[in-house]
Design a protein around this nucleic acid. Sequence first.
DNA 1: CCGTATCCAAGTCGATACTG
DNA 2: CAGTATCGACTTGGATACGG
Lengths: 126, 126
Amino acid sequence: MHEDCKAETALEILIGKWKPVILYHLFSNGTMRFSELHKAIPDITKKMLTSQLRELEYHDIVHRKIYPEIPPKVEYSITEYGQRLTPLLQTMGDWGSAHERHLKELYGEDRPAEPLNLKKETTAVQ
Amino acid sequence: MHEDCKAETALEILIGKWKPVILYHLFSNGTMRFSELHKAIPDITKKMLTSQLRELEYHDIVHRKIYPEIPPKVEYSITEYGQRLTPLLQTMGDWGSAHERHLKELYGEDRPAEPLNLKKETTAVQ
DNA sequence: CCGTATCCAAGTCGATACTG
DNA sequence: CAGTATCGACTTGGATACGG
């Protein structure tokens, strides 16, 4: 962490392959059960869903309400504090959309999937 | 990538352990040579500095100007398009600062470094 | 239903040495 | 000076099976 650069703090909290989608669903739908989230994001494993939710919970962005029943029932929602993420997510989303258009202008429709010189060439095939 | 969630696009571009610091220095200082950046961020390796700069260059955020001299001289700067990142970085920075204060309120000064239940416990010792 | 535990593959990053 | 090349440690995420 580099003291002066608080933008890193924001990144650290939002990164994690699934956090943005999870937040997207919770912001859109309000309260959701674990299984509902899982249905909404079919490709995530339960392990990942759990861990990402726990991290968001630690940061007071997501609230976890446990109903002591059998079978268990757990509901997730955005905390009141978590609502303050809205402008940030909005700004990120806007920039992201604009940037996709910009890349299209730069490289054309068939943009060559990140020719990042130093990364592996994924050896074509498949 | 999940179509509806363009915030992911922004994350994808900004992540990379060093990109925020690099941008911070380039935004603050204007044009910088490779070696100046390296001095400003001593812990980064040349490999990492190069790769992060190349990714930013691909996204038209950073411009790379090569002087065909011996010894070589390369200057990096934020492109005009790259300036559009300013509001995003600002918003991220603001949220990051506010969030650090919030965590302090929640967990006190000696906040217990992310008790993320599912991550390894680094087996104490050392 | 809502998770954990375990194991493994892939990716990321750092250290180091070398080059035009 | 400004990189590349190579290797290995560490981290992250996915598959699968099991538990309260």
